[in-house]
């Protein structure tokens, strides 16, 4: 059901429309912020802002990507507003440690090889330039199409394609993923 038809239904409230998207928005926010309570606050702030502008929802056809676009802008504002705060540069391991890993052990020997590999990918991804990091999040994890991402980022499709390509190449390079086949070994 599109948002337009949902609103036309007399019994559909703002909560009815937004509730099915809350958890996904939290996951999206968490992947951007890597912090549980900040992700929850980001979603809450965004939803409250949305509530005040709910009349606009009448015009929305593709709600998922539209919501992500709004959430992403909220995230960018959050980053902008907080980067001037000197207290944010202070190590805050106490909270981050508890909330980011949510009960997972940090002890390397307790992680499986698969988990360690996932952690390495996660860490390397976060080391990319923010725009490359975010494009990979949107495309490979959130599953948005290139057209949707171009709209989210307000950038031309061609620019986005080349950015995505560069982002993936950078990630691959940082992970040192280029395979060495037997043939190449023989040649060398």
């Amino acid at each position: 059901m599109s948002i337009l038809s949902a609103f036309k239904s007399r019994n559909t409230s703002f909560e009815d429309i937004i509730r099915p998207h809350l958890k996904e928005m939290y996951y999206q926010a968490f992947r951007l912020l890597k912090h549980q309570s900040e992700a929850e606050d980001l979603v809450q702030d965004f939803v409250l802002r949305l509530y005040k502008k709910q009349a606009k929802l009448h015009e929305i056809e593709h709600l998922r990507s539209w919501l992500y676009k709004g959430l992403y802008r909220q995230f960018l504002n959050f980053i902008r507003d907080n980067k001037n705060n000197p207290l944010n540069n202070v190590d805050d391991n106490e909270d981050d440690g508890v909330e980011s890993f949510a009960g997972r052990s940090l002890s390397p020997e307790l992680l499986t090889e698969q988990e360690m590999e996932l952690q390495r990918v996660q860490l390397t991804l976060s080391e990319l330039a923010p725009i490359h990091h975010h494009i990979i999040l949107m495309h490979d994890i959130e599953g948005f199409t290139l057209v949707e991402i171009a709209s989210i980022l307000d950038c031309p499709l061609g620019t986005l394609k080349s950015r995505l390509h560069r982002a993936r190449e950078n990630l691959k390079d940082k992970l040192m993923m280029e395979p060495i086949s037997k043939n190449q070994c023989v040649k060398s």
Partner: peptide, 26 residues
């Protein structure tokens, strides 16, 4: 494999009352 790993990256679950709190705020 990398694409699968990216899709399987762990995320911390939200608080149990996360949705309730937002609905309460609305």
């Amino acid at each position: 494999k990398l694409k699968t790993q990216l899709q399987n990256m762990p995320v911390a679950e939200p608080s149990s009352d996360f949705e309730q709190r937002i609905i309460a705020r609305i």
